[in-house]
Write a protein that binds this DNA or RNA. Structure first.
Lengths: 225, 225
DNA sequence: GCATTTATTTGCGTATGCATTAATGAATGC
DNA sequence: GCATTCATTAATGCATACGCAAATAAATGC
């Protein structure tokens, strides 16, 4: 097989990706502190690229650098979750409206349709991980179709911030059958160019999801994850 | 109480503040490239803190670090402006709605009221700079009252991104008398707890402002600033 | 002349070392 | 015993150095 001429990728970039992976996997757990030198050794590089990566991730709201205390992986509280979902609801609904207004044809909406199909399949097979992956894809694609690069970036950031928490909530919630119906309704609204329906259907969808998640967190007293 | 000693402030922090100042003042103009070593010399420090500052500012969307090309101050296109206003419209309207729902009393709204008064005074005296400053204050305070820290952070970021451009547009647009009426309407809606009115009045306000700005930019063919 | 190769320069990525200063523990006085 | 001061430790902030790759200039071939 021909080796892909992959760009050498700097240590700083590697550090960013590996730290993200460690955070999402829970290997660096929420609320934990880590010395720069620790992380550097762990990643097999010097402190410099680790610091640069940490600075970047701090800007993304994934961690916090506190002098003398080390790098702290930010935990997500119920309040944080509510804030994040509020932002996502608002910006994704706007993206849905914009997508509807832009009038995409079926071909342009194929990725969106595919994500929905995949969710249906995953749901039928009760494969929650696969469902979550397709759900991510649906939301990312929706935002992409909205055509506002800043909304895309902000939404991605917010999704990252709750990604860790989702591993916990995913298996606590009932099968998201309603969710799939919502997605389809949003898709249909976009497809038929119905701007306000797209916006409202998506808003309802996100608000419902938010209520379920927040409800679960409060019920199980999960205040920091 | 001991007299508070002003914290020594690290070079990285200084670099962040000074670079921001240089960008907003136009001293580092939109689209210009600057070597890390240049900037370091200019700020009287080594490359290390400059790089760290640049990384941070890159995360805020103010500049871009391109290997071998230097640090590039990001220009704002008409498209960017539209994107940013779209985000601001959406998130600030939400903040307005939330502020109305939270039911603040007059005392809690005093800063907001003050900003409005200041705008009126500045407008009467035709002091646009002072008006703009009070306008910033109004929007920042509104978002603060909304009580969602992420919305606050995102809005601040978006405002920063257009700050440079405003210096240009401020003197091109007609006196923003309508703007002041809008602010008052939003204030009243929040004060009387009228959630949907607060949201809609603010949305109208931002959309009107956006249309004026975008219109001006297109009319004057200002595609990069 | 023009294209292609080779040499040179330049800026960046990153390791390293050290001074500074906060945090920790030990020692001292009351 | 308890508080306070001092000594110790250790992590950070930052300057510095250097190899390497990209960009540019020079040289060579055609």
């Amino acid at each position: 097989m021909k080796d892909q001429a992959s760009k050498p990728l700097s240590n700083t970039q590697r550090a960013i990706h590996e730290l993200r992976a460690l955070i999402f996997s829970g290997d660096l757990s929420a609320g934990s502190d880590h010395l720069e030198s620790e992380l550097a050794e762990r990643l097999g590089m010097s402190r410099t690229p680790v610091r640069e990566a940490a600075l970047t991730l701090e800007g993304q709201g994934l961690l916090e650098m506190r002098p003398r205390k080390g790098v702290r992986i930010l935990p997500i509280s119920t309040t944080d979750m509510a804030e994040i979902y509020e932002v996502l609801t608002e910006l994704e609904s706007l993206a849905a409206a914009r997508a509807a207004k832009l009038g995409y044809d079926d071909a342009a909406l194929s990725d969106l349709a595919q994500a929905i199909e995949d969710m249906d399949a995953a749901l039928a097979a009760e494969e929650l991980e696969a469902w979550a992956e397709a759900d991510d894809r649906f939301h990312a694609e929706l935002v992409r179709l909205g055509g506002n690069s800043r909304i895309k970036a902000i939404a991605a950031m917010m999704v990252d911030q709750v990604r860790r928490a989702r591993a916990t909530t995913l298996f606590m919630r009932p099968l998201p059958t309603q969710s799939n119906e919502d997605h389809r309704a949003v898709y249909e609204a976009i497809r038929s160019g119905d701007v306000e329906t797209a916006r409202e259907r998506h808003r309802d969808h996100r608000e419902a999801a938010q209520n379920i998640i927040i409800g679960l967190l409060e019920k199980h007293r999960l205040n920091r994850l």
